[in-house]
């Protein structure tokens, strides 16, 4: 069974999206085909608008549609605190806590020596002028993975000689978690990051 050429092209493009296999791509394509012309146009315009208007914030490398992102434009935030995250979605997760009122720096990835993701491919160089501008503490909020830890240790090794306080968010059991079902690596991490009560 062959699709008409435009339909085949749509299925092929949708298949390239993360987590979308051939069956899902086919289902989405037929769904779009059945939608009114206006709905399909809105979707196409939304995709093009994102590609044309979204860029990296000149200060923190967050995604934004202006020169500076919303966080960097906010004058009420504490500029002495800088939280380093890997991706914009990590920044959003931190913002949802409502607890953090400092600034951010988005690396746009994590170091992975084995996959050739080196410091020059990330927004690491851009971090140092920011730190020199009155930052007192850098909080490393990176995933507790080999890549996250490599990045955290790399940044700490370069920031600490500058006399900056460098901290890392705790790793361990999740809120509401059950110790019985935690894996050993998480429990080991929780033990290492324990604190006095």
């Amino acid at each position: 069974m062959h699709y008409a050429r435009p339909l085949a092209q749509l299925v092929s493009e949708l298949e390239r999206l993360p987590g979308v296999g051939p069956k899902s791509a086919q289902r989405m394509a037929f769904h779009l085909l059945r939608q009114p012309q206006e709905d399909a146009r809105r979707l196409a315009e939304a995709i093009m608008s994102v590609k044309e208007s979204i860029r990296l914030c000149a200060e923190c490398s967050n995604f934004t549609d202006q020169e500076l992102c919303e966080v960097c434009r906010d004058t009420r935030r504490d500029r002495a605190l800088l939280c380093v995250v890997a991706e914009t979605r990590d920044l959003i997760a931190m913002e949802k806590t409502g607890e953090y009122k400092g600034m951010y720096h988005v690396l746009q990835g994590l170091l992975s020596p084995m996959e050739n993701i080196t410091p020059d491919l990330l927004k690491i160089r851009e971090l140092f002028p920011r730190v020199a501008g009155g930052v007192q503490e850098v909080i490393l909020a990176l995933n507790p993975t080999a890549e996250g830890q490599t990045t955290a240790l790399y940044l700490a090794s370069r920031l600490k000689p500058l006399g900056i306080r460098v901290t890392q968010i705790a790793h361990g059991l999740p809120a509401g978690g059950d110790m019985e079902y935690a894996d050993q690596a998480t429990l080991i991490s929780a033990l290492q990051w324990r604190r006095e009560v």
Binding site: D183, Q184, A185, T186, S189
Partner: peptide, 13 residues
């Protein structure tokens, strides 16, 4: 998130 395999599937383990 929360998979029992996540910690055990990290490199150098």
């Amino acid at each position: 998130a929360g998979s029992r395999l996540s910690g055990a599937t990290e490199p150098f383990t």
